[in-house]
Every structure is written in structure tokens, then in C-alpha cells.
Design a binder for these strands. Structure first.
Length: 213
DNA sequence: GCGCCGATTGGCT
DNA sequence: GCCAATCGGCGCC
């Protein structure tokens, strides 16, 4: 069942947690690919130093983040990689959830062709990898989910005791905020270095996500 | 398995 | 010009 745009009209940290277990699917040139969300990060507006919407206000690059909820915000970085976000908050308010990793479930053969030489585990275990596997690029920026090439569907809700949180990855600012969530029992989360990991129950471990199992 | 480093483009100052 | 919400290859343990 397609997730409606109202689902996204909330603060990104709420949407992020609720997206764990959901299914992202693309249909590109007749080929369907996708997977189950196992890792996400939340990005807020001007109060978030790690966000594209921090301090600068609306620019050509981040304008999509201020648009209506349920829209894809796709941008290009490091000269190579596309990042997939879902716009949150009501129209006019900046906010988004970055999809960082998927467990491949749909069109694995197609995704393996797009990412030659990679094991299934490595097809979508990072934000730049999953966009390559799913064929997402700047053409998807600003498209409404379910109306363009990308759709997001409800999935089985993961048990709350498998959901853990940590700081965000790869930022020069705002990494101290606990705005990353992932499934501790998944083999498909990204391999980024991270700070302390916190269980829903409040226990703290360090280092690799797997230590939080 | 881990850590370092270069690649490569668009957007912003 | 500078830098980035990253990745993959290589060297070394």
C-alpha cells in the first residue's frame, strides 16, 4: 500500500523512525527495483547545522526541501553520487529524511547489473550505492512519490527493540545530534564510522552497529 | 578487516 | 576557488 503524502507532513525525526521497514521501489525503463529501508537520517531546517537548509535560506539546490511533503529531494555530491531524501513537514517548511541503506528485495538481478561485481549485501548499503542500484538521479528531484519513477510503500513494522539510534555520518557539523536510525539486526546497513549507539531502551554501546545487537 | 586517499561535478561565497 | 549528507581501491596488519 502506497504511503500517502500526509505521512510525511511531520517533523523528519518522526517520519524517519516510521520509515524503517518501508519499501522503496523505482520503475525505470520497465525495470522494477527496490528494497526495505534499514537505515535513515533526519535533516531539519535552519536550526540544524548539518542541513542544506541551515543559515543560507532557499537556494537553487535546497529549494525542494521547502516544498510539499511526499516529494523526492535528490541532489548530487562528491562529483559522483546522488542522495535520495523524502521531503517532510508542511509546504514551506524545510525538512527531509535521507535514505541511507536498503535491504534489496525487488529486481536484485537488475541492481546487480547496475553495480557490477558487488555482492547482494553491498548493492544498497550506503546512500550513494542505493541510488546507483535503483537508477535514481537528478531527474527524480522534485517528483511526487507514487507519481514519478519512485514510490514508497508500507512494510512490516520492525520490532521496536531492533531500532537503534546514533549520530549522523559524514557531516562537518551537527554530527552530535542523534538523528540517525537503523535496524541493529540488519546485515544491510552502511559501513560508516559512527559514535555511540543507543538502544531504544537507553543502553549505550560503541563502534560498529553490530555491537548494538 | 581497517585506514588512508584520490576522484570528480555542481552549487555557493 | 572551495568544499561536499561518498565510494572504492590500495596498502598493511
Amino acid at each position: 500500500m502506497l504511503i500517502p503524502s500526509e505521512f510525511f507532513a511531520r517533523p523528519p525525526e518522526e517520519v524517519a523512525v516510521d520509515l524503517l521497514g518501508a519499501l522503496v521501489v523505482t520503475t525505470i525503463e520497465g525495470e522494477e527495483t527496490g528494497g526495505r529501508i534499514v537505515e535513515v537520517e533526519a535533516y531539519r531546517g535552519s536550526d540544524d547545522p548539518g542541513s542544506h537548509a541551515a543559515t543560507r535560506g532557499i537556494t537553487k539546490r535546497n529549494a525542494t526541501m521547502y516544498g510539499p511533503p511526499g516529494t523526492a529531494y535528490v541532489y548530487f555530491t562528491y562529483g559522483n553520487h546522488h542522495m535520495l531524501n523524502f521531503v517532510c513537514e508542511p509546504d514551506g517548511v524545510a525538512g527531509a529524511v535521507l535514505v541511507r541503506a536498503l535491504e534489496p528485495t525487488v529486481g536484485i538481478d537488475t541492481m546487480a547489473r547496475r553495480r557490477t561485481g558487488r555482492s547482494v549485501r553491498e548493492l544498497c548499503n550506503g546512500p550513494g550505492k542505493l541510488t546507483a542500484a535503483l537508477g535514481i538521479d537528478l531527474a527524480d528531484n522534485g517528483s511526487r512519490l507514487g507519481e514519478g519513477r519512485i514510490s514508497v510503500h508500507y512494510g512490516e513494522r520492525p520490532p521496536s527493540d531492533t531500532i537503534v539510534t546514533s549520530g549522523r555520518i559524514g557531516l562537518s557539523a551537527g554530527h552530535d545530534l542523534g538523528l540517525r536510525w537503523f535496524l541493529s539486526d540488519s546485515d544491510f546497513v552502511s559501513r560508516g564510522r559512527i559514535g555511540p549507539v543507543r538502544h531504544s531502551g537507553g543502553r549505550t554501546t560503541k563502534g560498529d552497529p553490530r555491537e548494538a545487537r
